[in-house]
Amino acid sequence: MGFLDNLLGRKRETSSTIAKERLLTVLVHDRVKLTPDDMEAMRAEIIAVISKYVDIADPEAIDVSLLRGEESDHLKADIPVRRTRN
């Protein structure tokens, strides 16, 4: 549907947007000096701590990532918590 997206002015995933996204990810890791291994270890520890207090819905769905910010970079953890009544 690339041409329709283009005609309607919608953004298509071009190789330049892929390049930019990949660069932003690699640079934030370069700058914070966190290796994928460290990241994985940290993720496991965060899950362990959080699960002491709340019921984590799906450990596989947990997303821990580094994001680029204006002044500083951000570590973002998105942890789905199980929703229970009473």
Partner: peptide, 16 residues
């Protein structure tokens, strides 16, 4: 190439 979205633009590189 920039117009076709196949090369990062100056805005992209400056932002990064």
């Amino acid at each position: 190439m920039v117009n076709r979205g196949e090369m990062m633009s100056k805005e992209d590189v400056v932002e990064i």
